[in-house]
């Protein structure tokens, strides 16, 4: 069984059967804060609802972002620690790929998540390999479009099947590839389902292609100012 964790937006933990790709259980917390508080309870709940014990887990799949730093790290820290505890491998997954998996279309589309500070994180997909959405660009940060640039905004229901995420789709009138603007249909993901992370990990394991993502996809350097010259204190 695969234990899957993502804390790139909210917090989500799932137990996935790699043979059947069944999401045996998924526990979610929508809040974009408080990841450290909820992670233990979500892990406990997902395992209990799946009727699994830690010894049943063979791999830990984890969403590596993109996502706001502070929360994103909690899920990765938990995934690595759980794997260390059981002596099993971690399978890193790009969190946007999970949202793309749920889109289930061969046409070109972009997954967009709020990266705060008036920026979006954007990844563009077209087609798939081994059942894994083919990411043709991203994830990258782009400035959030102004409201008047958005046309045809409409709400769409998710599949409602436990692993659903996309809340809203829209078409951009004039996508600009040079500026890294989203291409094709735009899927705004408000949450990432750990179930989808787990399914992707199962497919990656089966296909024998585990991505090497050492560090989280922060996409931003730390906020840190190099000190300037020492200021005078005398008047």
């Amino acid at each position: 069984m695969i234990l899957a964790i993502d804390s790139s937006l909210g917090s989500s933990v799932a137990v996935v059967d790699p043979a059947t790709e069944d999401v045996c259980a998924q526990a979610d917390s929508e809040g974009t804060r408080g990841h450290a508080e909820v992670i233990g309870t979500l892990l406990e709940r997902a395992l209990a609802e799946a009727g699994a014990v830690p010894a049943d887990i063979t791999h830990v799949a984890v969403g590596m972002g993109p996502g706001p730093f502070t929360g994103l790290r909690i899920g990765i820290a938990a995934a690595r620690a759980f794997a260390t505890g059981r002596g099993i491998p971690v399978v890193p997954v790009v969190s946007h790929d999970a949202a793309a998996l749920e889109r289930q279309t061969d046409g070109r589309f972009s997954v967009v998540t709020d990266a705060r500070r008036r920026e979006n994180a954007v990844s563009t997909y077209e087609g798939s390999d081994d059942g894994i959405p083919r990411r043709v660009s991203g994830p990258v940060l782009v400035p959030q479009p102004r409201a008047e640039d958005l046309t045809n905004t409409r709400d769409s229901e998710g599949s409602g099947e436990g692993v659903s995420t996309p809340a809203r789709t829209q078409n951009l009138s004039a996508p600009d590839p040079a500026a890294g603007a989203p291409l094709g249909e735009v899927v705004h993901a408000r949450s990432i389902a750990a179930g989808a992370i787990g399914i992707l990990a199962a497919r990656m394991l089966r296909a024998g292609r585990i991505p090497e993502i050492g560090e989280p996809l922060y996409l931003r350097a730390p906020d840190a100012k190099l000190p300037g010259p020492v200021k005078r204190v005398s008047t």
């Binding site: 450290a36 992670i39 233990g40 892990l43 830690p54 502070t70 790290r73 995934a79 620690a81 505890g85």
Partner: peptide, 12 residues
């Protein structure tokens, strides 16, 4: 928070 997240998962 990094330590807290890790500790909870390790204990579980």
């Amino acid at each position: 928070m990094v330590g807290v997240g890790a500790a909870k998962a390790l204990a579980l």
